[in-house]
Amino acid sequence: MIALIALLLDAAIGWPDPLYRRIGHPVTWMGALIARLDRAMNRGGNRIGRGMAASLIVITAAVLPAAILQAWLGPLAAGVLAWPLVAARSLDDHLRAVARPLLADDLPAARQATAMIVGRDVTRADEPALARASIESLSENASDGVIAPLFWAVVLGLPGIAAYKAINTLDSMIGHRTPRHDLFGRFAARLDDATNWLPARLTALLIAATSGDARRSWAAARRDARAHRSPNAGWPEAAMAGALHVRLSGPRVYADRVADEPWLNGSARDPGAADLDRALAIYRRAVLLAGLVLAVLVLVRPW
């Protein structure tokens, strides 16, 4: 029930800008705490241990009030509190912001919108590169931003979704293989891998089930997911590549280096603007199917 309420509220209204301007967002609150701990604790010896301690502080700060509030207020109110921790509408909005100019052949606007959702350098990217980066972001974040939070809400309620978002935010801020964070963020990165293991595969299943070509989509996921640098992101990305009959991943440019990543569904063609539009349609159907599954679980649970 908590997961279903959160998803319905997010799909209906997202996180309104006036509310964000007034109080911010729980993820930004977590981010501020992580940044403060990074400055205070990421120094001296035993960086791995210090990073583990910092991660546990952040997770505890998220879980403890969530557990108290759920016990005090009950599942209906807990569902409302879980609402900002699901990002289904936000992800759709950000990807539509890329799709619109890309479909209109406005590459400068499409590059600007794509730069808001990916970390790679897209200043000179052409249509296939922009479509590829956006579809990859949509596929990975369908897991990280939607299915994984819902999964942990189903398993552990409001404390579960709060813990997951804390872990995911830790990974996004300190879980990088950089000189500063390779040791300090190692625990957070491994924990994020563990908590996303099953949700990533469930996301791939949902994408395949709603793709219109489930056999091809799931075959691509099973064949190519393990080639991805991430133990989890390759599953929804490869499933989407198979669903669209395009290739994803491959070489990409970051600020200071070129990452020579393997292709997913590499024998297929490059994606274009129309494929991003198709990917959004699959994503919406996958989220709808997840919502229907949650509704069924709510209905059958009393029996």
Results as ranks from 00 to 15, higher is better:
A109V: 03
T123G: 13
P108Y: 08
W152Y: 06
S134V: 05
W83R: 06
Q70G: 08
R120Q: 07
R100T: 14
V80I: 15
L138G: 03
R96G: 10
G79I: 02
A88Y: 09
I147H: 05
A133I: 10
R111D: 00
P84F: 04
A153Y: 11
D144F: 04
L158K: 02
P128C: 09
W152P: 03
L85T: 01
A67S: 15
L91P: 06
G74V: 03
V146W: 03
I68N: 11
I135R: 06
A113Q: 12
I147A: 11
I117K: 06
E127L: 00
A129C: 04
S134G: 10
R132M: 13
S139D: 03
I135A: 09
D93I: 15
L158A: 04
L130Y: 04
M116Y: 12
F151P: 10
L107Q: 01
N141G: 01
L107Y: 01
L156A: 15
V118Y: 10
V86M: 12
R89H: 08
A129H: 11
A131H: 08
Q112G: 09
V122S: 04
P108M: 09
L95Y: 03
A129D: 13
P84T: 04
L91D: 05
A77M: 14
A142E: 02
L103R: 12
D105F: 00
G79W: 00
R96I: 00
T114R: 13
D121Q: 00
P159D: 07
I68F: 14
A71R: 15
E127G: 00
A71T: 12
V154L: 15
A110P: 09
A97W: 09
T123E: 14
W72D: 04
R124L: 13
V155C: 13
R89A: 12
A142T: 13
G157N: 06
A125E: 02
P108K: 07
A125H: 02
W83P: 07
R111M: 00
D144C: 06
A104Y: 05
P159W: 04
T114N: 13
A133F: 04
R132T: 08
E127P: 00
L103K: 06
L76H: 13
D106L: 09
N141Q: 01
R96T: 05
A97H: 13
M116L: 14
Q70P: 10
A88N: 08
R100F: 10
E140H: 10
A142V: 01
A110N: 04
R124A: 15
A142K: 05
P128M: 07
A97E: 14
L158W: 01
G157F: 06
T114W: 11
R111I: 01
V98A: 03
A97C: 10
D121Y: 00
W72M: 13
P149R: 06
R89V: 09
A82H: 08
E140K: 11
P75M: 00
V86A: 09
R100K: 14
V146P: 00
L156G: 15
S134W: 05
A110L: 07
F151D: 03
S137I: 11
L73T: 13
A109S: 15
L158E: 08
H94Q: 13
I68V: 15
T114D: 12
A71F: 07
A82K: 06
L102F: 03
I68T: 13
P84S: 04
V98F: 04
G119R: 12
L91I: 06
